[in-house]
């Protein structure tokens, strides 16, 4: 099973993401902002990163940009959780190196579907 990093400043969404992924046997590490996420990713290699975009301290897109610079994360799937109003955000995220996105609101099945898609 995969090692997954879930980054979101909203505890409820983060816990939901973590719980959903854990229910499928994945190992999930939680982080509350981009900075924490980046630090976690530097010390452990994750197979997948799922991150919120709008966060204090460091937003999700900046984190993705930094992650892609790390040799360990050149080909790692990095997913953004974004809202529909963030059309530009998707492009901005892609430019920063995001693999793809999950549009909020989402339910656990949708999350698992997308995760299955990137992890196989």
């Amino acid at each position: 099973m995969a090692n997954i990093l879930a980054v979101d400043d909203s505890a409820s969404l983060r816990q939901m993401v973590a719980f959903t992924l854990k229910s499928q046997g994945h190992n999930v590490t939680e982080a509350a902002d981009g900075k924490q996420g980046l630090d976690a990713a530097k010390s452990t290699k994750f197979d997948l990163v799922v991150t919120d975009v709008n966060m204090p301290v460091m937003d999700g897109i900046s984190m993705i940009r930094e992650l892609r610079k790390l040799p360990n994360y050149r080909g790692t799937p990095l997913l953004m959780l974004t809202t529909e109003s963030g059309v530009d955000k998707k492009q901005e995220g892609k430019a920063a190196g995001a693999t793809g996105w999950i549009v909020k609101p989402f339910n656990p099945d949708k999350l698992l579907g997308v995760v299955k898609r990137v992890l196989g």
Partner: peptide, 22 residues
């Protein structure tokens, strides 16, 4: 900060099925 708070509430509300809020 105001925007971020509103944004989080909207996102969470949608996900948890509180459509009126969202």
């Amino acid at each position: 900060a105001i925007f971020r708070a509103a944004h989080s509430i909207k996102g969470g509300a949608g996900t948890f099925g509180l459509n009126e809020v969202s």
